[in-house]
Simulated scan of single mutants.
Amino acid sequence: MSEVFVAVGSSLGVEPAAGLCAVAAESGATLIIVNRDPTPYDDLADRVVREPIGEALPALCAELAG
């Protein structure tokens, strides 16, 4: 089981991969979505990041690494 699930740069509109967000959230993982546009899973996410991926991802990785 994962403690954190990060979906990056995806509209999360194509199954079965998109459904992994729901699986992660239902399993108790922290769900973080990094995407320019809204996704169908934003309401399940613990955090939604709308910054450009090239800026958001390095900062998010550093934060998660502690």
Rank of each mutant, 00 (worst) to 15 (best):
I33M: 09
E15M: 14
A22Q: 15
L20K: 11
A59E: 14
I33L: 13
V34M: 09
R36D: 00
E51F: 03
G19Y: 14
G66V: 15
L44V: 07
G66F: 03
A17S: 11
V49Y: 01
V48S: 10
C21N: 10
L64Q: 12
D43L: 11
A56Y: 00
P38F: 09
D37L: 12
A45F: 09
A59V: 10
T30V: 15
R47N: 07
C61R: 14
A29M: 11
I32H: 11
L20I: 06
P52H: 00
L60A: 08
G13V: 15
I32C: 14
A45L: 04
G19L: 11
E55N: 07
T30Y: 08
L60N: 10
A24F: 08
D46Q: 11
S10M: 06
R47E: 10
R50A: 01
P16V: 15
E15I: 05
V14F: 07
E26G: 11
P40L: 03
N35D: 01
A45S: 06
C21K: 14
D42I: 00
V14K: 05
R36Y: 01
L64A: 09
P40S: 10
N35L: 02
T39P: 07
P58I: 00
G54K: 04
T39K: 03
G54S: 06
P58M: 03
V14C: 06
A29H: 05
P52G: 02
L57M: 13
G13F: 02
A62Q: 14
T39M: 05
N35F: 06
C61A: 15
P16H: 15
C61I: 15
A22F: 09
E26S: 15
E15N: 08
A17V: 10
L12Q: 04
L60W: 03
D37N: 12
P16S: 07
P38T: 07
A56M: 01
L57T: 08
A25M: 12
D43A: 13
L20T: 07
E26V: 14
L20S: 08
L12G: 05
T30Q: 13
G54N: 06
C21H: 08
V34C: 04
L44K: 15
P38C: 09
V23G: 08
E55H: 02
A22Y: 14
P52L: 03
L12H: 04
G28K: 12
L60I: 04
L31P: 12
I32N: 08
I53E: 00
I32D: 12
A59D: 05
P52C: 06
P52T: 01
A24C: 05
R47T: 07
L60F: 04
G28A: 12
A65S: 12
A17Y: 10
A18Y: 09
N35C: 05
T30A: 13
A29V: 07
V14I: 15
G13M: 13
A62C: 06
D37Q: 10
D37C: 02
S27G: 15
